[in-house]
C-alpha cells in the first residue's frame, strides 16, 4: 500500500503537528473534494442498512463476542472474517462528515506507522465516497 494520506487543509495541520519520526515516509495528497451527503441522503442510507443481511449479522455476532479482547489489534483480528464490503457499507451509511470526525480523532493521537496506515485507509475510503457522491445527482 502506498504511504499516502488524503488530507484536508485542517487535517494537514494536525498531521504537521505530529512528531517528525511519526510523519517520516508519509506523502500528503490534498483532499479538495467536498461532496458531502445531504441530510435526506443520510437518512435514506440508514433506512437502507440491512441488519438481517448475513454478513451484517456476522459482524454483530463478532461484536457481541468481543468482550474478552485486550487490544484494538486483537479486535481487528477477531473481525477478520467479516467481509470488507460490510465494513464499507457501514462507512457508506455514516457518510463523509462522520468519517472526517474519525479521521481527525485518529490523526490527533497517531503514534506509529500502523496508526497512520489506518488513517490512510480511512482517508482513502472517504475520498472514494466523495467521488461516488459526486458522480450521481438526483434525477
Amino acid at each position: 500500500m502506498k504511504n499516502s494520506l488524503h488530507l484536508t487543509a485542517i487535517e494537514r495541520k494536525q498531521f504537521d503537528a505530529l512528531p517528525e519520526d511519526v510523519r517520516e515516509g508519509w506523502e500528503i495528497t490534498d483532499e479538495t473534494l467536498e461532496a458531502h451527503e445531504r441530510p435526506e441522503e443520510l437518512k435514506m442510507r440508514v433506512l437502507m442498512l440491512d441488519q438481517e443481511e448475513p454478513a451484517m449479522k456476522l459482524f454483530v455476532e463478532k461484536l457481541q463476542s468481543a468482550g474478552s479482547i485486550k487490544n484494538p489489534s486483537e479486535l481487528a483480528e477477531h473481525l477478520g472474517d467479516v467481509p470488507p464490503s460490510t465494513l464499507y457499507t457501514i462507512f457508506f451509511t455514516i457518510g463523509t462528515r462522520a468519517m472526517s470526525e474519525l479521521i481527525a480523532a485518529f490523526l490527533t493521537v497517531a503514534t506509529s506507522d500502523d496508526d497512520l496506515a489506518g488513517v490512510a485507509f480511512l482517508t482513502a475510503i472517504r475520498h472514494e465516497l466523495f467521488l461516488s457522491n459526486a458522480e450521481v445527482s438526483p434525477a
Partner: peptide, 23 residues
Amino acid sequence: FRHPYKTAAGVIGVSAVVAATLF
C-alpha cells in the same frame, strides 16, 4: 487494498466498532 483489518488493524477495528456503536 489488502483486507482492511490486516492492512491497518487497530484503527480500522476501532472505527468499525465506533460506527457500529453509533448505530
